[in-house]
């Protein structure tokens, strides 16, 4: 990690909690999969199965947002 990256500034706690963690690139894959597993454990979500098609990225993002909202 670079010296400049040791301090990260945030305007809010929400912004801080969403922020990626800066780590040395070596070993970051392991940290990544651990974080993803933790996310699944803390916020389990039942995904549908199969293939869904979208004309635009915005459509894809909206579908994801809608699914999250409907599963709450």
């Amino acid at each position: 990690m670079t010296r400049q990256a040791r301090v990260q500034r945030f305007r809010s706690v929400e912004e801080m909690s969403r922020a990626p963690v800066l780590t040395p690139a070596d070993g970051s894959f392991e940290r990544f999969v651990q974080l993803c597993a933790r996310l699944r454990a803390l916020a389990p979500d039942e995904y549908p199965r199969g293939v869904f098609k979208f004309r635009t990225l915005e459509e894809a993002q909206a579908a994801r947002r809608d699914r999250h909202q409907s599963s709450r």
Binding site: P20, T23, A25, S28, F32, C36
Partner: peptide
């Protein structure tokens, strides 16, 4: 996306 970022040492969880 986030999977690619992780390979560069910028790590956040994703689904």
């Amino acid at each position: 996306g986030a999977t690619a970022m992780a390979f560069h040492g910028v790590v956040r969880a994703t689904e």
